[in-house]
């Protein structure tokens, strides 16, 4: 880890002012400290956000959706009983995410902005494309954990368990910088690295996520989160899926399918969701949805199994909505 200065501002304005060139924002540190230890990030200043009041906790004003502060520790979302009832997918996703220690340290905002786990990217000694090198080493290297779909120059996968769950709730995020505030759909935060965009997030320099908002309408959907790992705990998803829908008179309305672990971004195919509108979610519909979700999948040498897994997880998640 390189040497750096450290500040713990009490206000957002101070934090934004400090987040100039070479500074990095620190929340739970579970990703950033690792990146720094691996020499992948070498900030001159760390701006610790945890001293800022007002960015921690969540609220649900009647009928106006849920707002979650970006600095809320994941464990608080996981263990809150009323939130578990309102946003069951979130709870399911968090229960198998990392470990209790990491969920205690990690925050919502940090989770959304965590960087990918590709072992070539994480290896300081490998000059991969995403880090400014000339090529992707995984595409013809060791790629059992890599993308099967939606990848361009870089075949890393979206690692978060929280993100598919939040996107299934149509989450939006609020962003603040010294230039002002804006908001966007959470799914738009994620970009598949390509061409000149050697990055995973559309966050602008000096910008911070302040909160996540879930519209009230999305809370009416029932849902589930299914995750396949290569051991029974403490693993990033090989494939994961958040599925949500309203079930009215035995058929599905307003379906959301968001997958993790298979593409550089949280994977959502609108056609697959639309195709399930009014469907009883029977086996044929599930197979059709899986086809649509995975159209264009091009597995690499070692990750063909993910296609089989992804198809089954689509089926399993959808079937559980009508179970």
């Amino acid at each position: 880890m390189n040497a750096f200065s450290y500040a713990r501002p009490r206000t957002l304005a101070d934090a934004l002012r400090l987040l100039r060139n070479g500074a990095a924002a620190l929340a739970g540190g579970t990703d950033l400290v690792g990146l720094m230890k691996d020499g992948l990030t070498r900030p001159t200043t760390l701006v610790d956000l945890t001293g800022i009041d007002g960015l921690r906790g969540w609220s649900h004003p009647k009928g106006r959706g849920i707002r979650i502060g970006a600095l809320t520790p994941l464990v608080e979302l996981e263990t809150d009983q009323s939130l578990a009832k309102t946003m069951p997918i979130l709870r399911e996703a968090l229960r198998d995410a990392a470990t209790v220690q990491l969920r205690t340290m990690g925050t919502v905002g940090g989770n959304l902005l965590q960087r990918n786990r590709c072992w070539y990217f994480r290896d300081e000694g490998t000059p991969c494309w995403l880090k400014g090198g000339t090529r992707c080493f995984a595409v013809d290297g060791e790629n059992r954990y890599h993308a099967i779909i939606g990848a361009q120059e870089c075949v890393m996968v979206s690692p978060s368990d929280l993100v598919p769950a939040l996107i299934a709730y149509d989450a939006e995020i609020a962003l603040t910088s010294s230039r002002g505030q804006r908001s966007m759909k959470l799914i738009d935060l994620f970009v598949a690295p390509r061409g000149r965009e050697r990055r995973e997030h559309s966050l602008r320099p000096g910008e911070l996520i302040t909160e996540v908002r879930v519209p009230e309408a999305a809370l009416a959907r029932r849902g589930t989160y299914v995750k396949a790992m290569d051991r029974k705990a403490w693993s990033f998803a090989l494939v994961s899926i958040a599925a949500a829908a309203k079930i009215e008179r035995g058929v599905a309305r307003d379906v959301r399918l968001v997958m993790g672990g298979i593409a550089p971004v949280p994977w959502r195919v609108i056609a697959a969701e639309k195709g399930l509108e009014g469907s009883p979610l029977d086996e044929a519909a599930c197979a059709d949805a899986a086809d649509r979700m995975l159209t264009g999948a091009t597995p690499l040498r070692d990750n063909g199994y993910k296609v089989t897994l992804a198809r089954e997880l689509v089926r399993r998640a959808l079937r559980s909505l009508v179970a």
């Binding site: 786990r117 072992w119 000694g125 290297g141 060791e142």
Partner: peptide
């Protein structure tokens, strides 16, 4: 896992070298 082209061990850690939990 060892990358054949570079000879580098890709999972010399406890994240991707999966011992039972």
């Amino acid at each position: 896992f060892v990358d054949r082209a570079t000879g580098r061990v890709m999972n010399g850690n406890l994240e991707n070298y999966k011992v039972p939990t």
